[in-house]
Design a protein around this nucleic acid. Structure first.
Lengths: 211, 211
DNA sequence: ACCTGAACACCGTTCAAGT
DNA sequence: ACCTGAACACCGTTCAAGT
């Protein structure tokens, strides 16, 4: 039962953390089980005691990403409880910021590197929780007359799709040439949301005209 | 100069085609240079005569995907020249259909498996052309009073983001449990676009209530 | 110009074995 | 229960060599 015969009490989380670090340093293509193992100071086959295969580690890293976003949504809910529109904007901003600041982790998390999501109950659950949190935020906007009063599920898909899509397009730099020279990331987000929101979003957008 | 000493006159395109087939059969993770080579009936190092590395093949496959979508957008432009709203809807539908019918090819194409896009001029060009085609479609809607009359570039980003995001969420099956049981894919697309379009979209949405 | 075959480093995965 | 080390099949990439 001597603790130091095992490298640490929590190799599983150490591997997840190592994976996230590798993603930050080398991108999605740099992630490998063997590298995560070596970074955790353990042999290349040790991970198989905790993860049945690479997909399982990826699913765990994805779950961690979802949890992080979900926690921030919860924080926004308390912080902006008096202002549903602001809450919606800040929720979207959490998403965009995660994408821009942790591109590889975002891709693994939200661009579905996991093939059979159903095999990972924890991932399914946090996905569901996050969807519900977003929908509740949107229902509050609907109640305040700020969004189309249709089926909340559908309005949620519409809004989430737009924010997710914007995050992806930002990651792929498919906008920089045409748009981003004139408008900052947050202004662009506000302009996109404004297309659906039925009240002016209280955030000053400055179009930088090149003169 | 005997033709049959070389396996075919056009190994480059054969490799691209082989890659697309592999994607369809085995998904993104199944794609390898060696498999594409063997499928084209050529040794595993032959591809390097045409592609500097795997990224270059991926970029070529991505370019092919973009070209296909772009061609269909052009076709829609002629077909629906009298009805800009219908054109917008069908353009979005082309995008969604490509995602659902060719998930792996769509991911490689639009979810940026290419790291340094700038290294592949053909890809940059077709990306630009596609963005322009989408923007022109949106400008026609703006002129008809169907969309917010803001900067076309920004409105384009807003609409394209939503459609791209919807395609991604559909691919990840992150909607099936909550929404897709009640509404079909096309109805969901219409409902999303309707959030931004300032006229009823002439497409009947039936909510299948479970009774 | 276009392709082959051997070679190298890296990877995911398995398995018998050790504590 | 947790980890090691050898082994296997597969991969990307390079390079000398062949036509």
């Amino acid at each position: 039962m001597r603790k130091d015969t095992y490298h640490h009490g929590d190799l599983k989380n150490a591997l997840i953390q190592a994976g996230i670090e590798i993603l930050a340093e080398e991108g999605v293509s740099g992630l490998s089980l063997r590298k995560a193992a070596s970074r955790a100071g353990v042999s290349h086959s040790a991970p198989y005691a905790h993860f049945s295969d690479k997909q399982a580690l990826v699913a765990a890293i994805s779950t961690a990403g979802y949890s992080l976003v979900h926690a921030r949504l919860q924080a926004n809910r308390e912080r902006y409880s008096a202002d549903p529109l602001r809450e919606l904007l800040e929720n979207a901003w959490v998403y965009i910021r995660f994408a821009v600041e942790n591109p590889a982790h975002f891709k693994i998390t939200f661009s579905s590197a996991v093939d059979k999501e159903a095999d990972y109950p924890a991932l399914v659950e946090v996905t569901r929780q996050t969807f519900i949190a977003v929908r509740q935020s949107i229902e509050r906007c609907q109640a305040a007359g700020l969004l189309d009063p249709g089926l909340p599920d559908i309005t949620t898909v519409a809004v989430w799709s737009q924010v997710h899509g914007l995050a992806c397009l930002l990651l792929e730099n498919q906008l920089s040439h045409t748009v981003l020279e004139r408008v900052g990331t947050r202004e662009l987000l506000v302009a996109c949301l404004q297309q659906m929101v039925r009240a002016p979003i209280e955030f000053n957008i400055e179009y930088r005209t090149n003169t």
